[in-house]
């Protein structure tokens, strides 16, 4: 996704004369050719993340469309008040594009990890958060958002699905259909393939979104039905979408589990992103355990007869 993002910036800058790119060193080397082709429009402020967001806000106040990029913890956490004031309070927009989602930077340790990023951005008014699951989705989102003046957070990750699924308007997409009374698993962004693997032989439906905020509440209500049994599997902090899901389902009795990066402990280990996914219960085995807990109260749902469900990965969009 990161390479695709860099590759798309040249056509985005060519197509949108008002777009500028604001960097704090990260990515500047990769984008040197783009900077050379678009003089003055790739602005590297050095390792100064507060200035990076302030400059983006000032650019937007003069009618520019800034795309701002660095590692998630420095983009969202270090400059959080700047997001709130230099963009939100000024009522101007920007496209923030992060790398280093959750534990992608597993070997770097906690300093380079920010699993709360989606929750933090979603806590501010007027933001749209995209968590793409495929490089093609990144490209589509980047081009579409460059033409708007919205406040957008685009969260890139090293984890990805085999193919793109995202609906252009952020609506929920049904990946594995089934009877409306069957439980629903909502996968966010790059968690989809893991969810499909984890639930291949379970009687559940699977839906997908790459835009967890604002969540497609109408789509969720429609899919979840009158008595929802729902698992939400997110690559970010556990419960990131809990408030939105609760609000969407407030008018009906529901049972919901939220699967994500646990919020109660810091994992002081290095290793691979896959190691971290396993430790956090975000690999296929871990996700399956949580979904089985959800299904446990519904006898007969745990195993579908006759082997793997043929509906798996045969979606109708």
């Amino acid at each position: 996704m990161r390479a695709r993002f860099y590759a798309e910036l040249d056509p985005v800058l060519a197509a949108h004369p008002d777009v500028d790119v604001v960097l704090a060193v990260i990515g500047a080397g990769n984008l040197a050719p783009v900077a050379a082709r678009h003089p003055g429009r790739v602005i590297d402020v050095g390792i100064r993340e507060q200035a990076m967001i302030g400059v983006a806000g000032g650019l937007a106040l003069t009618g520019r469309r800034p795309i701002v990029h660095t590692y998630a913890p420095f983009l969202v956490e270090r400059a959080y008040e700047q997001l709130k004031l230099d963009l939100g309070h000024q009522d101007v927009g920007a496209i923030l594009v992060s790398i280093g989602a959750s534990f992608d930077a597993s070997t770097e340790g906690r300093t380079h990890q920010a699993p709360a990023d989606v929750a933090l951005v979603s806590a501010l008014p007027g933001w749209t958060v995209h968590v793409p699951g495929h490089p093609d989705e990144v490209a589509a989102m980047l081009h579409a958002e460059a033409a708007t003046d919205r406040r957008v957070y685009l969260r890139l990750s090293t984890g990805q699905n085999r193919r793109p699924w995202a609906a252009p308007d952020g609506r929920l997409v049904t990946i594995r259909p089934g009877p409306p009374e069957d439980p629903l698993v909502l996968a966010v962004g790059p968690m989809l393939d893991t969810v499909l693997e984890a639930t291949a032989d379970l009687r559940v439906r699977v839906a997908y979104t790459a835009t967890p905020h604002p969540l497609d509440a109408a789509g969720l209500r429609s899919l979840a039905g009158p008595t929802p049994v729902l698992a939400v599997v997110e690559p970010s902090l556990e419960g990131t979408s809990a408030a939105a899901v609760a609000a969407a389902l407030a008018d009906r009795p529901s049972r919901v589990v939220h699967v994500g990066v646990p919020r109660d402990a810091e994992l002081r280990r290095y290793g691979s992103a896959a190691d971290h996914a396993a430790a956090h219960g975000l690999d296929a085995a871990g996700v399956r355990r949580r979904v089985e807990e959800l299904l446990g109260a519904r006898p007969g749902l745990l195993a579908a007869p006759g082997g793997p469900d043929p509906r798996a990965v045969s979606p109708s969009r």
Partner: peptide, 8 residues
């Protein structure tokens, strides 16, 4: 910082 962005 905002003024710097405006100036740019």
């Amino acid at each position: 910082p905002l003024a710097v962005g405006m100036a740019i």
